[in-house]
Measured scan of single mutants.
Amino acid sequence: HTCEKCSTSIANQAVRIQEGRYRHPGCYTCADCGLNLKMRGHFWVGDELYCEKHAR
């Protein structure tokens, strides 16, 4: 898989955010504040991922 955020190959663990879309665990972050979304879930606003606070 290729990380959709940093565009590099994912060798080990990948986070599947949608069918066919993956990120490194470290790239699974809010587009606004950079908070890691692991164990928090994500919210779509347009084509970007946000934490609950910044999705509003």
Results as ranks from 00 to 15, higher is better:
residue 7 S to M: 10
residue 8 T to N: 15
residue 40 R to T: 11
residue 27 C to A: 04
residue 11 A to Y: 02
residue 36 N to M: 10
residue 52 E to L: 08
residue 12 N to C: 09
residue 19 E to S: 07
residue 49 L to R: 00
residue 39 M to A: 15
residue 18 Q to W: 06
residue 18 Q to M: 06
residue 25 P to G: 10
residue 34 G to V: 03
residue 47 D to A: 12
residue 6 C to T: 03
residue 12 N to R: 01
residue 21 R to V: 13
residue 27 C to H: 02
residue 29 T to Q: 11
residue 45 V to C: 06
residue 43 F to T: 11
residue 30 C to E: 00
residue 32 D to F: 12
residue 3 C to M: 00
residue 21 R to I: 11
residue 13 Q to Y: 01
residue 3 C to S: 01
residue 16 R to N: 14
residue 45 V to R: 13
residue 16 R to M: 14
residue 11 A to G: 12
residue 22 Y to H: 04
residue 3 C to T: 02
residue 25 P to T: 09
residue 25 P to N: 08
residue 18 Q to V: 12
residue 21 R to K: 11
residue 17 I to P: 05
residue 4 E to N: 14
residue 36 N to Q: 15
residue 17 I to Q: 02
residue 19 E to W: 02
residue 27 C to Y: 00
residue 17 I to G: 06
residue 23 R to L: 07
residue 30 C to W: 00
residue 44 W to T: 07
residue 51 C to Q: 01
residue 22 Y to C: 05
residue 8 T to W: 10
residue 45 V to Q: 09
residue 2 T to E: 02
residue 5 K to G: 11
residue 26 G to M: 12
residue 2 T to H: 14
residue 33 C to A: 00
residue 48 E to R: 10
residue 52 E to Y: 00
residue 42 H to E: 14
residue 27 C to V: 02
residue 45 V to P: 04
residue 13 Q to N: 15
residue 5 K to V: 13
residue 55 A to Y: 13
residue 46 G to L: 09
residue 24 H to V: 02
residue 15 V to N: 03
residue 56 R to P: 15
residue 30 C to M: 01
residue 30 C to H: 01
residue 26 G to P: 11
residue 11 A to M: 03
residue 12 N to F: 03
residue 51 C to P: 02
residue 43 F to C: 13
residue 48 E to V: 11
residue 44 W to L: 13
residue 27 C to M: 02
residue 40 R to H: 15
residue 53 K to N: 10
residue 3 C to D: 00
residue 27 C to F: 00
residue 43 F to G: 10
residue 32 D to N: 11
residue 37 L to D: 06
residue 26 G to R: 14
residue 9 S to M: 02
residue 7 S to Q: 11
residue 2 T to G: 00
residue 11 A to F: 00
residue 55 A to Q: 12
residue 56 R to Y: 14
residue 2 T to M: 03
residue 20 G to P: 02
residue 37 L to E: 04
residue 53 K to M: 08
residue 53 K to F: 10
residue 42 H to A: 08
residue 50 Y to G: 03
residue 54 H to W: 00
residue 16 R to V: 14
residue 54 H to N: 03
residue 43 F to Q: 06
residue 51 C to Y: 00
residue 20 G to A: 06
residue 47 D to S: 11
residue 11 A to Q: 06
residue 51 C to G: 01
residue 12 N to E: 15
residue 51 C to M: 00
residue 19 E to A: 08
residue 26 G to E: 15
residue 20 G to Q: 02
residue 32 D to G: 08
residue 37 L to Q: 02
residue 48 E to I: 08
residue 11 A to W: 01
residue 35 L to I: 12
residue 53 K to T: 12
residue 17 I to K: 04
residue 52 E to K: 07
residue 1 H to N: 15
residue 13 Q to A: 04
residue 47 D to G: 09
residue 52 E to W: 09
residue 42 H to L: 14
residue 7 S to G: 12
residue 10 I to F: 02
residue 23 R to M: 05
residue 2 T to C: 05
residue 38 K to M: 10
residue 11 A to K: 15
residue 16 R to P: 15
residue 48 E to H: 10
residue 16 R to S: 13
residue 7 S to P: 02
residue 43 F to R: 08
residue 18 Q to C: 10
residue 44 W to A: 14
residue 17 I to Y: 04
residue 28 Y to K: 04
residue 30 C to G: 02
residue 4 E to T: 11
residue 30 C to V: 01
residue 54 H to K: 01
residue 36 N to E: 13
residue 22 Y to P: 03
residue 37 L to W: 01
residue 46 G to Y: 12
residue 50 Y to K: 12
residue 48 E to K: 11
residue 46 G to P: 05
residue 46 G to M: 06
residue 31 A to E: 13
residue 21 R to L: 11
residue 21 R to Y: 11
residue 24 H to G: 03
residue 43 F to N: 13
residue 33 C to W: 01
residue 24 H to K: 07
residue 45 V to Y: 13
residue 19 E to T: 10
residue 41 G to Q: 10
residue 20 G to K: 11
residue 30 C to K: 00
residue 42 H to K: 09
residue 5 K to T: 13
residue 22 Y to E: 11
residue 47 D to N: 09
residue 5 K to I: 15
residue 25 P to F: 03
residue 25 P to S: 13
residue 47 D to H: 08
residue 11 A to P: 14
residue 42 H to C: 11
residue 28 Y to C: 07
residue 7 S to A: 13
residue 49 L to C: 09
residue 39 M to H: 09
residue 50 Y to P: 00
residue 54 H to V: 02
residue 50 Y to D: 10
residue 18 Q to L: 10
residue 9 S to A: 14
residue 49 L to W: 04
residue 7 S to H: 07
residue 19 E to G: 04
residue 46 G to Q: 07
residue 10 I to L: 04
residue 16 R to H: 11
residue 32 D to H: 12
residue 20 G to I: 06
residue 24 H to N: 05
residue 35 L to F: 14
residue 12 N to Q: 11
residue 52 E to D: 12
residue 40 R to D: 12
residue 16 R to I: 14
residue 2 T to F: 06
residue 19 E to K: 12
residue 46 G to S: 10
residue 40 R to Q: 09
residue 1 H to E: 15
residue 1 H to Q: 01
residue 52 E to P: 14
residue 18 Q to P: 03
residue 6 C to F: 02
residue 50 Y to W: 08
residue 5 K to Y: 15
residue 36 N to I: 09
residue 52 E to R: 06
residue 54 H to C: 14
residue 29 T to G: 07
residue 13 Q to L: 04
residue 13 Q to D: 15
residue 4 E to Y: 13
residue 34 G to L: 08
residue 23 R to G: 03
residue 9 S to H: 02
residue 52 E to T: 03
residue 23 R to V: 10
residue 10 I to K: 03
residue 11 A to N: 15
residue 35 L to E: 13
residue 27 C to W: 02
residue 39 M to L: 09
residue 25 P to Y: 04
residue 6 C to I: 08
residue 46 G to D: 07
residue 21 R to P: 09
residue 34 G to D: 11
residue 20 G to Y: 08
residue 56 R to T: 04
residue 36 N to R: 06
residue 29 T to E: 03
residue 54 H to G: 05
residue 33 C to Y: 01
residue 36 N to P: 13
residue 19 E to P: 07
residue 4 E to P: 02
residue 40 R to L: 14
residue 51 C to N: 00
residue 8 T to D: 15
residue 43 F to Y: 08
residue 28 Y to V: 08
residue 45 V to G: 13
residue 29 T to H: 11
residue 49 L to I: 13
residue 27 C to K: 04
residue 53 K to V: 12
residue 3 C to K: 03
residue 35 L to H: 11
residue 37 L to P: 03
residue 33 C to T: 01
residue 33 C to S: 01
residue 35 L to N: 13
residue 25 P to D: 15
residue 7 S to T: 12
residue 44 W to H: 14
